[in-house]
Simulated assay, not measured.
Amino acid sequence: MEFQEVVKKRYACKSFDGTLVDQKQLDIILEAGRLAPTAKNLQEQRIYVVQSQEGLNKIDKVTPCRYGAATVIIVAFDKHHVFTYPGEKRDSGIEDATIVATHMMLAAHSVGVDSCWVNFFDPEIVAKEFALPDNEEVLMILDLGYASEGTKPLANHELRKALSETVTYL
């Protein structure tokens, strides 16, 4: 699928059919995350694939937004292995993990897998439920799967502001 079609057609799926993502498709999705750029190539992302019923029950405990997905990815980053920017007020952790997650989300669509970016949860509770290391911070949850029959994007999905409203040339 051409890249412009991927970014235009991908949407937040809110109803999955409960089918496990095919392993070949999942490998492509995970590889896209692995290849994502990170500051100084530190690759501080930590990716957790949740497919067991026990794990999915934990996801349901921390958010109401699994929407029936049988494959869920938790995206975290090692907060002690990030690049600190000049001025020492920001570091690369959140943005690098976001780039990784975005690569995976777009790769999913390119191979026929629907997704939903979930941030409606308390990161500390997710980390505790899954016994993640203290040095890791949870950024987001990515639901993956196949849309239930009849599921479609929100009615306003294709409405976008004109570039002139969001871009300024300096």
Score class of each variant (00 low, 15 high):
D78I: 09
A101E: 04
P86R: 09
E88K: 13
D96Q: 11
R90A: 11
V111A: 03
V118F: 00
R90H: 15
D122F: 09
V100N: 10
A127D: 05
D96P: 04
K79Q: 13
G112N: 00
K128Q: 13
T102C: 12
V75R: 04
R90V: 09
A69C: 06
H103G: 08
V62R: 08
V111R: 01
E88F: 07
R90K: 13
L106V: 03
E124S: 14
C116D: 08
C116R: 07
I59M: 02
Q51A: 02
H80D: 11
V118I: 13
K89C: 01
I94D: 10
E129D: 14
G112R: 03
D91G: 06
E54W: 00
M104A: 00
D122K: 14
A70Y: 02
I59K: 00
I125P: 05
V126S: 12
G112T: 00
S92Q: 05
N119A: 14
V118P: 02
S92R: 06
I59N: 00
I59P: 00
I74W: 14
D114K: 09
F120S: 09
D96W: 01
E54I: 06
G55W: 08
T63W: 11
S115R: 10
A101Y: 05
V100R: 05
S115C: 12
S52D: 11
E95Y: 15
Q51V: 01
Q53H: 12
V82L: 07
Y67C: 08
L56W: 06
V49L: 02
G68Q: 07
M105A: 03
H80W: 10
A69E: 02
P86L: 06
H81F: 14
E54K: 04
K58Y: 04
A97W: 10
I99Y: 06
W117Q: 12
P123I: 10
G87W: 05
P64F: 09
F120Y: 09
Y48P: 08
S52W: 02
G55V: 04
I125E: 15
V72E: 03
V75K: 04
C116Q: 07
G68R: 04
I73R: 01
A69L: 03
V50Q: 04
R66N: 14
K128E: 15
K61D: 10
E129C: 15
T63M: 14
H80I: 11
V126A: 08
C65I: 07
M105D: 02
G93M: 04
Q53M: 15
D96G: 01
H80P: 05
C65R: 12
F83E: 09
I74E: 14
V72T: 08
C65F: 13
N119S: 13
K58Q: 09
K128I: 05
T84K: 15
H81M: 05
I99V: 14
E95W: 13
Q53K: 15
V62K: 10
V75I: 15
Q53S: 13
I74H: 08
R46Q: 12
R66A: 12
V50R: 03
A107V: 00
V118D: 01
E129K: 10
F121W: 08
A127Y: 07
L106K: 03
G55M: 06
A101M: 08
K89F: 11
Q51P: 12
P86S: 10
G93C: 00
M105G: 00
R46C: 07
H109N: 02
D78N: 15
Y85T: 10
T98R: 00
K89R: 13
